[in-house]
Computed example of a mutant assay.
Amino acid sequence: MSSPAKASPEIRVLVENPQTVADMRANGVTIGIPIRHEDHEGIAALYRLRDEAHAKRDWALLDSTEDMPMMMVSDSSQGDGVSWIGTAENSQAITDAAMKLVPKVQVQHERRFVFITEHLAVNLENNTVEVSGETLSFRAAHLLVKRNGQWRVKCVVEGGWGDMALLTGCSFQLGETSGTKQARTP
């Protein structure tokens, strides 16, 4: 097991010598600032674009709604949690591999946006899809970040994709580092 990273002198001062809120703010700590505006419409616009991209199977448009690098978290058929780091370079390969398994279907989304701050939010979804006469229901969560005034998906959490590395014809390779699978293009 590796030793923990050493904290910078500034971090050590804040941890070892509790400061006033004003001192915390002066050092760049903004925790506890009240949310004055929840941008539901901005996030809804993001999901209209993502839904359009899925309907058209336009993966470049879908990629434009994501803040790279992004993390994808799932679980495997063995019950192990796994994650991938998606980059601008490998995102298309990851999406292509996943979509080879998914027929073109219409997914019904029930979305609930939870704001952590004015610039961080979580989308919690209950989803329903019909595939060959069988109805599937699943949950997902997306961590969203607002950067340069635009909402983007930073992390996707959805069960059932953890064995994706075993796909035949997958156009990317996986390497393991610290329990996280990082997708790399060949």
Rank of each mutant, 00 (worst) to 15 (best):
E52I: 04
H54N: 08
H54M: 15
A55T: 03
R57P: 08
R57W: 07
W59M: 14
L61N: 09
L62N: 08
L62G: 07
T65W: 02
E66G: 03
D67W: 09
M68E: 13
M68G: 10
P69K: 07
M70G: 02
M70I: 01
M71E: 12
M71C: 11
M72F: 14
V73S: 12
V73N: 01
S74A: 14
S74F: 06
D75R: 07
D75L: 04
S76V: 03
S77K: 12
S77Q: 15
G79W: 11
D80E: 11
G81T: 09
S83M: 14
W84P: 01
I85T: 14
G86R: 13
T87I: 04
T87W: 05
A88T: 13
A88I: 07
E89N: 05
Q92C: 04
D96G: 06
A97V: 01
A98G: 07
K100I: 01
V102P: 03
V102R: 13
V102Q: 13
P103T: 01
K104A: 03
V107L: 07
Q108T: 13
Q108M: 03
E110C: 08
E110I: 04
F113S: 00
F113H: 12
F113I: 13
F113C: 02
V114P: 03
F115E: 09
F115V: 03
F115K: 09
T117K: 03
T117M: 11
E118S: 05
H119F: 14
H119W: 07
H119V: 05
H119S: 10
H119P: 01
H119T: 10
L120W: 02
L120R: 05
L120A: 08
A121W: 06
A121V: 06
A121S: 09
V122G: 04
N123H: 01
L124H: 04
L124I: 06
E125W: 02
N126H: 12
T128G: 13
T128S: 04
E130C: 07
E130A: 15
V131P: 00
V131F: 00
V131Q: 06
V131I: 15
G133E: 07
E134H: 14
E134K: 04
L136E: 12
L136M: 13
S137T: 15
S137N: 15
R139L: 14
R139P: 06
A140F: 11
A141W: 07
L143D: 05
L143I: 14
V145S: 00
R147D: 11
N148Y: 00
N148F: 02
